[in-house]
Write a protein that binds this DNA or RNA. Structure first.
Length: 452
RNA sequence: GGAGAGAUGCCGGAGUGGUUGAACGGGACGGUCUCGAAAACCGUUGUGCUCUUAUGGGUACCGAGGGUUCGAAUCCCUCUCUCUCCGCCA
């Protein structure tokens, strides 16, 4: 992903005026781009998306509209011509009409081909245009994320804290060596209490989100490339973040966001059912292409992990509120794990194309002496629903695109890192946070096995 | 994996290649009737693109994509999905 650093500047006031979801007819589509060209250009600059060209989109669209008009004029004449031939008529009159029909058919074919090409070019250009951005999002790159809140205090250790790799090895919890033989690097086995810890974290997170109104789901771990694309993933090509299954039109999912969002693809929802909150447990698979060397040791960046995810479909008016709600659930979960963390508002240059705004929770990681990302929640407004074609009927009974949001309840390996490192004791044992104990048979501590 | 059947509007369900955006039934909505309700009766009941906007017009859409034809929901091919039977499997 392209990360470009920007200096802070004044917010362009125009962006404050821009509320795409306040206008019934507006959306981040060609029409919106045409009518808000300067804002779209500015948004692209702020996000540092190099290959997005809104001017080209507008030009290609103009070309497309012309071709539509010409094509439809021919179709109209073709239909009229065919209508004339319904009843009886002298053979020579009929053959004249047939001749005319043949001419029209040829013309139409040529225009349809041109139109098809124009639409393909337009869609290609359109694909590179990112979502608009919430006016409060800080402008800048990875380091310009704005800290919104600090919860808890990093513990001061009276001994030298170990990293999770050391703890995992000493307590016989994580086995990277065997996984390297079986699957290669960046895979792992969880053993003993770590295996139970995963199940406990999943159950804990599922219970929290269920109590907050999220309907629990266990989702498929594979999905069609078209769904991945609609969610905003790039399923094919060198830089793809996901695995493809050879011989099948399927990818291993990078997150349950894909399967939860895709679940209602093509549907028109009832307004009274919104916001619709769904939660899901799935495995997540990531190639981590191009990520070698970046925090690649241990559980921080792995090819497969388990995750409990939240997803919501809302009206445009509800999405910001639900976004705040997701963040509050994430905070509840990490507070329950008794881990110090901070909340950051991700800057423009670090947002993925679908996100209108994104909040991350970063947990304190003693071995790195810094905070590391453990959850992420994004408001994608209409970006995904437009591609997935998920709508609802508004008060005028008109179909409108829903807003979609997603948030991590628990990404298991990173939670395990935080637990092992923050709750380690001088004697090498690890305290299990109270919130997880009911899911671990009441167990309170992880200790070295006797004779090990 | 093998054999067969199917996919039409909110739902059910018709549909000889030429006024079929789509019969008929149900539901929903509006109205008449009623003190009120039910029943009955009358009416309304899609989406995208596009032009023009007061209204309105054009075009496309009968699982998806191709093809045949002057003309396709209707004929042909491919794909997807659903159902039944057999096989296999946790």
């Amino acid at each position: 992903m392209l990360l470009v650093r920007f200096g802070f500047g004044c917010y362009p006031c125009a962006i404050h005026i821009l509320k795409p979801f306040d206008r019934g007819d507006s959306m981040l589509d060609v029409k919106f781009i045409r009518e808000n060209l300067e804002l779209v250009r500015e948004n692209i600059r702020n996000r540092g998306v190099g290959n997005a060209d809104p001017d080209q989109v507008v030009a290609l669209n103009t070309q497309r509209v012309e071709l539509i008009q010409q094509t439809e004029a021919i179709r109209k004449e073709r239909n009229e011509n065919a209508q004339k031939m319904k009843g009886q008529m002298p053979p020579e009159e009929r053959s004249e009409l047939i001749e005319r029909g043949k001419e029209l058919k040829e013309q139409l074919a040529s225009y349809e081909e041109k139109l098809g090409q124009a639409e393909e070019e337009l869609n290609h250009a359109l694909k590179n245009i990112p979502n608009m951005t919430h006016p409060d999002v800080p402008i800048g790159g990875e380091d310009d994320a704005k800290e919104l809140e600090l919860v808890g205090t990093p513990r001061s250790f009276e001994f030298q804290p170990k990293d999770h790799l050391t703890i995992g090895k000493e307590l016989d919890l994580i086995d990277f060596e065997s996984a390297a033989d079986v699957t290669g690097s960046s895979f792992y086995y969880l053993k003993n209490e770590a295996a139970l810890l995963e199940l406990a974290l999943v159950n804990y997170a599922m219970n929290v989100i269920t109590s907050r109104g999220y309907i629990p789901h266990l989702t498929p771990d594979l999905a069609r490339p078209a769904i991945l694309e609609a969610i905003g993933f790039n399923p094919r090509g060198e830089e793809s973040q996901v695995y493809n299954v050879e011989g099948h039109d399927l990818c291993l999912i990078g997150t349950a966001e894909i399967t939860l969002g895709g679940m209602l693809s093509g549907k028109i929802l009832r307004k009274e059912d919104l916001p619709m909150r769904v939660g899901g447990f799935s495995h997540c698979f990531r190639t981590e292409a191009g990520a070698h060397g970046r925090e690649s040791r241990g559980l921080y960046r792995v090819h497969q992990f388990s995750k409990v995810e939240m997803f919501a479909f809302t009206t445009p008016e509800q999405s910001e509120e639900v976004h705040a709600e997701m963040l509050s659930i994430e905070k509840e979960i990490y507070s329950g794990l008794e881990i110090p963390f901070r909340v950051v508002d991700i800057a423009t240059g670090d947002l993925g194309a679908p996100a209108y705004r994104k909040f991350d929770i970063e947990a304190w990681m003693p071995s790195r002496e810094t905070y590391g990302e453990v959850t992420s929640t994004s408001n994608c407004t209409e970006f995904q629903s437009r591609r997935l074609n998920i709508r609802y009927r508004d008060d005028e009974n008109q179909p409108r695109f829903v807003h979609t949001l997603n948030g991590t309840a628990v990404a298991v390996p990173r939670a395990i890192i935080a637990i092992l490192e923050n709750h380690q004791n001088a004697d090498g044992s690890v305290r299990i946070p109270e919130a997880l104990r009911p899911y671990m048979g009441g167990r309170e501590i992880i200790e070295a096995r006797k004779g090990a």
